[in-house]
Every structure is written in structure tokens, then in C-alpha cells.
């Protein structure tokens, strides 16, 4: 009898202590991970060319990879059509637009509908759109993040030789010393490229315009090139320079 009591007395203490300390509070957790504003993924890049003499004259082109890191291909949605002998400021809108299955149709009026949208037939509304589905549909502005970390980024440009009078040449992707007109600098005086200037030359059809955003943490300097660091995007557009309509002087009807 006695040994049994002693056993009971002494064994209960460590066992209880163990049970309490070790198992702790085991609340049945069914928590869902919180929504994150994913700033790593880019889904849309807009290039916005604004005529410096007429701010209402804007040419905007877009590249889109609507499923982000999914298996759908990147699409260059537009061709750049600029007018000859004009000067444009090029700015960017770089977004993570959270491809939401419902919203997707609305955004893409002018994009290819065939392959990309059978998913709306296949997908089950139950899984994806619970009551708790609390994500906001606003796109994340990655461009702002890039501007914040200007001394770790630089945009490089490449284009068909001499389709611009300013900058001349074929851009600084192949050679970092070639001309590109940067309007913005980082804190160390090195160019960033979210705002650049372009003066078109004469008419040209079927040219190429390539822009690369390089992420260069710790290695960006005055001589860093498109070969230093890692590209966050690398886009090539077809560019057409269109000659201006000829206005006949002295006639009563203009060409419209």
C-alpha cells in the first residue's frame, strides 16, 4: 500500500508538470493566413508616353501576365504608336493587380479571350469566394516601391537604331555608356528611369522598343549595366513612328 501511495504522490507531480508545461494551451486553431499585399509579383506594366507639348496626347501600352507566377504566358497587349518629330515623357505604371476571377473580364476588353478564360467555366465558386474572402481588389503599386528603393533599381532601354533623335543610337541595354535621357535620379545621383524623355525622328514601321527593369541591390553604381543584377521585367514592344497628317494650306477642308 505504502509504495503505491508514494508512487502516486511523486509521479503525479512530474507528470502534471510535464503535461502542463509541455502541452501548453492547445487551442484548436483554424486560422487562415492573413492577406498579404504581394509586392514581389508584377502582373501589369503600363508604358505611358505623354507629349510634352500637349498633355492630353497620351500613348499608353500594356504588358500583362494576369496570373502572375502561374503558367499563363506574358502578353504584350499593345503596339507603341508615336508621332514623328515629337518629344514624349515616358512614365510607368507597375502593378500587381491580384487577378480576381470575377474582375478579370472587366479589365481585359482588348485582350485575347479564347484560351485564357475557360477557367471561369471550370472554377468552382465555393472554394475561392468564401464570406471571409476579404481581399481588396485594388492593385498594389509596385512602381511606388521601386521609386522608394531607387538606389537599387535602374531601367535600361534598347531600341532600333536612330528611331529617336534624342537619344540617338540604340539605347543602353547593349552598352551602358550609350545615351538615354533620364529625368530622375536616385539618392546617389545615378539614374533610375521611371521618367525618361524621347524625341522621335521620322516615320518608321516595325521598330523594336525594349525596356528592362534591373534590380541591383548593393551593386548599382555609375557604370552598372543591364548585365548587373537581376531583371524584374524585360519587355519588348513593336514601335511604329507615324508621320503627321499633311494639312493642306489654303483649302477649305482639312484632312481628318
Amino acid at each position: 500500500m505504502k509504495p503505491m501511495n508514494k508512487f502516486k504522490k511523486y509521479s503525479m507531480v512530474p507528470m502534471l508538470a510535464a503535461a502542463v508545461l509541455l502541452t501548453g494551451c492547445e487551442k484548436e486553431e483554424e486560422e487562415v493566413p492573413e492577406e498579404e499585399h504581394d509586392h514581389e509579383v508584377i502582373t501589369n506594366v503600363h508604358l505611358i508616353f505623354t507629349n510634352v507639348d500637349d498633355p492630353s496626347d497620351v500613348v499608353e501600352v500594356e504588358a500583362e501576365d494576369h496570373d502572375g507566377e502561374g503558367v499563363e504566358e506574358l502578353e504584350i497587349l499593345d503596339t507603341i504608336n508615336l508621332d514623328a518629330s515629337k518629344t514624349y515623357d515616358l512614365t510607368f505604371e507597375i502593378l500587381n493587380a491580384h487577378d480576381d476571377h470575377d474582375d478579370h473580364d472587366d479589365d481585359c476588353d482588348d485582350c485575347d479571350d479564347e484560351d485564357n478564360h475557360d477557367d471561369e467555366d471550370d472554377h468552382d465558386d465555393e472554394d475561392d469566394h468564401d464570406d471571409e474572402d476579404d481581399h481588396d481588389d485594388e492593385a498594389d503599386d509596385i512602381g511606388a516601391e521601386i521609386a522608394d528603393e531607387a538606389d537599387e533599381h535602374q531601367l535600361f532601354f534598347g531600341f532600333t537604331n536612330n528611331i529617336f533623335t534624342n537619344p540617338e543610337g540604340d539605347g543602353n541595354i547593349d552598352d551602358a555608356s550609350h545615351d538615354v535621357v533620364y529625368n530622375d535620379l536616385d539618392s546617389k545621383g545615378n539614374p533610375l528611369g521611371l521618367n525618361t524623355s524621347w524625341t522621335t525622328s521620322g516615320a518608321y514601321e516595325g521598330g523594336k522598343f525594349r525596356v528592362i527593369l534591373m534590380h541591383q541591390p548593393g551593386i548599382k553604381n555609375e557604370s552598372s549595366s543591364s548585365k548587373d543584377g537581376d531583371a524584374d521585367f524585360d519587355l519588348e514592344f513593336v514601335i511604329n513612328i507615324n508621320s503627321l497628317p499633311i494639312v493642306a494650306i489654303g483649302t477649305s477642308a482639312g484632312l481628318e
Binding site: P33, E36, E69, D128, H135
Partner: peptide, 14 residues
């Protein structure tokens, strides 16, 4: 197993 996650567009999956 009981799984709760987020897709790239932040939709929840279970």
C-alpha cells in the same frame, strides 16, 4: 490534415 491558404490573388483556399 486541415489546410488553409491563400492563392496569389489572395483568395482563400481550404
Amino acid at each position: 490534415n486541415n489546410v488553409r491558404g491563400r492563392e496569389a490573388n489572395q483568395d482563400i483556399f481550404r
